[in-house]
Nucleic acid binder design. Sequence first.
DNA 1: GCCAACGTTGGC
DNA 2: GCCAACGTTGGC
Length: 151
Amino acid sequence: MAYWLLKSEPDCYSIDDQERDGANVWDGCRNYTVRNFFRDQMNEGDQGFFYHSSCEPPGIVGIVEVASGPVPDPTQFDPNSEYYDPKSSKEDPRWITREIKFVRKLPRQITLAELRQTPGLESMAVLQKGQRLSVMPVTDEEWTRVLQMVE
DNA sequence: GCCAACGTTGGC
DNA sequence: GCCAACGTTGGC
């Protein structure tokens, strides 16, 4: 059992979209570190923070759960998709992801600025300078500490 | 296999 | 819109 933080731009796919869809394939990610998290590190049943990025204000808005084993990202095979990858094949798919399902919204958003001000979260991956991964690990301690902020 | 150029992310 | 950080690409 592990915890994660998944970033999404709300203009593109928000927590409300996730709530409406329930479960869906987390597609479109084209970063090898993130691919490896999806393929090798996640476990079905792991939970994650749903984080709104590139918006005002950025921050954590909900909780989601890893709802499948590793699956190929279908958009890599679709020539009409902006995420189409002609170098990938169905025999040896390059981009692996998971189904992600909605668990709940937080009672209120926890902004990035708040996270930065919270003692105990100094080492949290999302707060580190220069990190830009769209999926990042969260420790047990960080998970608990963040949830305390909205209790 | 090195590394410069380029592209992307995402907070500010 | 700016720009720092850093991943990816491609020439050599």
